[in-house]
Structure formats: C-alpha cells, structure tokens
Amino acid sequence: MEYQRPSSLKPTSSGFCPGCMHSLATKLIADVLDDMGQQENSVHVVPVGCATLNLAYWKGDLVGAAHGRAPAVATGFKRTNPDRLVFAYQGDGDCAAIGLAEIMGAANRGENFTVIFFNNQTYGMTGGQMAPTTLIGQKTTTTRDGRDPLTTGYPLKMCELLATLEAPSFIARFALNTPKGCLEAKKAIKKAFTLQLENKGFSFIELLGNCPTNWGLTPLQTLDYMNTNTIPYFVPGVYKDKYAEVK
C-alpha cells in the first residue's frame, strides 16, 4: 500500500496551524471521496471559521456559506440537485452556536446530506474565544479564569441533542487523537456518504479535534489533553443508526 496525498485535495501546502487536526479531518474526508470515486460528484459547503481555509485545498465543486448557515445552503442545493453528494463541514461555533437553528432544522427535516462537525472547543480563526463546546474551566480569551457554568452554561453535546430527533439516520462521534479513532471516523464518513447516495437521509459525524495554538499546548500535548478532558465529556460512539446493516 502506498501512502499518498488524497487526489481530492490540491497539491498545495496547508494553511492550518502545525499539528491542527483540521488538516487530518480534511484528509479523512478526501480519502473517502477518493475511495468512493465521488470527487467530481461531491459538493463541499464551506463554513465560516478556520475551515474556510479549506476553500484553497479542495479540488471538487465548492460553495461558501455564511456563518452557521451551511445546513441551509446544503438544503437548497441538495433539494434542487439531488444526485450530487453534498456535505457541509462545520466548526463548533458555526454549528453549535450561531447555526443551531439551521442544523436542528435540517436534521429534523431529515435532509439527505451529511454534516461533518469539527469540535475543538474554541473559535480558532478569531483568536480563541469561548465556544459553545468549550469545557468547564477551560481558559479562553473571553473566559480568562476558565469557563464558568453559572454565567456561560455547559458545553453543548451536539450528537446527543440531534439524536433526540426522529428524522436523522446516522449520528456518531469520533476522536482524532488516535489512529484507531481516525480509522473509525473514516469508516463512519464512508457510511454517511453511502447512506446519502442511497437517499437514506441526514447523517452527522462529529470529529473531536484540537487547537494547539489557542489551547496553548504543543500538538503532542493536545493528544493527552483530549484523553483527559475532552473525551470523558464528549463521549465517542454511535448515537443513532437507522441502518446498522450498512457498513
């Protein structure tokens, strides 16, 4: 087996910070598109946030959405162009704060597209403010003494929230800090895309990632931090699976 850059990505260097798992998540999605031969058929809805950088790396068709509105844009696109493989990639601020209404609406309608949700508990692009998923006690530029639930509430669990809805087909969370987590995530992305191509409805894949820059940790330290802090709160696993027989 030859290890190489996915052909769905342009042969350019990444603008993501060193050690950032956004590039890992991007690569996993691109690998799946390569495997499935879906590069040309795919439409990537790009959000606002660090993931906006993806507009420079992706080889396939791509449309940029307003902050939080990727599920609405994907709804309009997919409903009028149902043969395409449509996926929105959203960060935690995009999906779990400003875009809560749009993700809930799209999931509740059972829209036939896939949302990849990258959760690294911070607003990376704007410099590390508190995100809806920021952990209790986690220091950010807007919670200098650590997130206090008395004034800022608790980290939002998107998989658990969406799993209360009838319509979604597949909802699962994976942590990208181990090879095992990455492989499982890749399988799940493939399953989500397969379900979509079979018109089996809405799928949501949450990827737990890091932000070495705004967490103030080295990339290696973030791996341990995730084991100790992130994973116990955001428990990986399958939260809803209407089509367990589909691999």
């Binding site: 509105r69 844009v73 994907a74 309009g76 696109f77 162009n81 209404a101 749009e102 809930m104 609406g105």
Partner: peptide, 24 residues
C-alpha cells in the same frame, strides 16, 4: 419544483442561496 418552509427567514434566504448555486 421544491418548496421548503424554513426554520427562519435567515435559513430560508440561505436555502435560496444554495438553490441558486445549483443553477435553479
């Protein structure tokens, strides 16, 4: 054609944006 009752005006106009992007 397709009619969608959006969850808000914000969502609705962004759905229109998505549909326009598909040439509709």
């Amino acid at each position: 054609g397709v009619f969608v009752q959006g969850e808000s005006e914000v969502a609705s106009v962004n759905m229109v944006y998505g549909a326009a992007a598909s040439g509709c």
